[in-house]
Amino acid sequence: MNDNRKKITVGIFLAIGILIFVVAIFTLGSQKKTFVKSFNLSVVFNDIQGLKKGNNVWFSGVKIGTIKKIDFYGNSQVKVLLSIEEDVHKYIHKDAGASIGADGLIGNKIVVLTGGTPKFPFVEDGDMLKVNNSLSTDDIMKTLQVNNKNLVDVTSDFKILSRNLIDGKGAAGALLSDEQLAQNFKSMVSNLNRTSLASSKAAMELSAFSKTVNTKNGLMDKLLTDTAVFSKLERSVGSLQQTTQSASVMAANLEAASGKLKTSDNAAGLLLNDAATAQQVRTIMLNLEKSSKKLDEDLEALQSNFLLRGFFKKRAKDSLKMKNN
């Protein structure tokens, strides 16, 4: 009885062990898609970035296969053979691409497929997909390192700049620490404000003036639109131009005449410039004055003469009669 119990117990444990082994095989097989019908695709990478056999293949965020084999290809490239489930065959086109990604930030490497465009036919077993160039995690980390270095440099420069501002170095530092300079800056801003207000006022006045110019039947409107007014203005300008020319000619003549007065080759110039001639003219004028006085005296004497007294009386009566008429 004891032997039979031992045999039954061992048989039960063996059956449980076999059952667990079978369940494990089917579980692992379902995870690795071992018992699912599939087809193969290949991709050639320049760098597989730590990709391993058995890693997953993803399409639109869904696991559709695994990496079946990894081999060197050509001089320094790596050919990766992908085992893809047959169910997704109708979603992947021949222009589909493959890239290497990560399952999370620091997770296992995976191959990510894109579906392509409907104008291309579906892939077939053994087709080679193109590679989509994308930043790897290493490239991202390198970029982050460069950015961190740049950030450190910027922080250091800002630290120096802030220290200079506090110490009053440079124009900005002087503006922050020098009270007189700050006051001058305030005055400058105030002047600029007044200038802007004056400019605004001038612009408003110019706008008002332009409105008056555009007023219908106004002077400027007539000048700009009325051809008759413009013709009159044009004639007036022509007349003014002629007057200006005449004035110019007159000024030239006066200048020439004044030039003649400075020379002694003419009568006026001789009188003005020659002292002897001027003295002779003075003598002649003095003699004429004496002669006129003598003539007046002679006429008075004739009026007293009895022979001519009747003539002068008659002449005086005639003059008085003409005044009365």
Rank of each mutant, 00 (worst) to 15 (best):
I8G: 02
I18N: 15
L19V: 14
I20P: 00
V22I: 09
A24F: 09
F26Q: 05
G29K: 02
K32M: 02
K32R: 05
T34K: 14
F35I: 10
I48Q: 06
L51N: 03
K53M: 08
N55P: 01
V57Y: 04
V57M: 13
W58C: 03
G61A: 15
G65H: 00
T66G: 08
K69N: 14
G74S: 07
G74Y: 03
Q77G: 13
E85C: 05
V88R: 05
D95M: 02
D95T: 05
A96G: 07
T114Y: 03
P118T: 14
D127V: 07
M128P: 00
N133H: 04
L135E: 14
T137Q: 14
D138N: 13
M141D: 10
Q145A: 12
Q145C: 06
V146P: 01
N150Y: 09
T155Y: 00
K169M: 09
A172H: 01
A172T: 04
L176M: 11
S177T: 13
E179H: 10
A182I: 04
Q183L: 03
N191T: 13
N191S: 12
S196Q: 11
S199F: 07
K201Q: 13
K201N: 14
E205M: 11
N214A: 15
T225H: 08
D226N: 13
V229Q: 05
Q245C: 09
M250C: 09
A251E: 14
A252P: 15
L254K: 10
S258Q: 12
A267F: 02
N273R: 15
D274I: 03
T277D: 05
E289D: 15
S291F: 04
S292Q: 12
D296I: 10
F311S: 01
F312G: 03
K314S: 14
K314R: 11
K317N: 08
D318Y: 04
K321P: 06
M322W: 05
K323L: 09
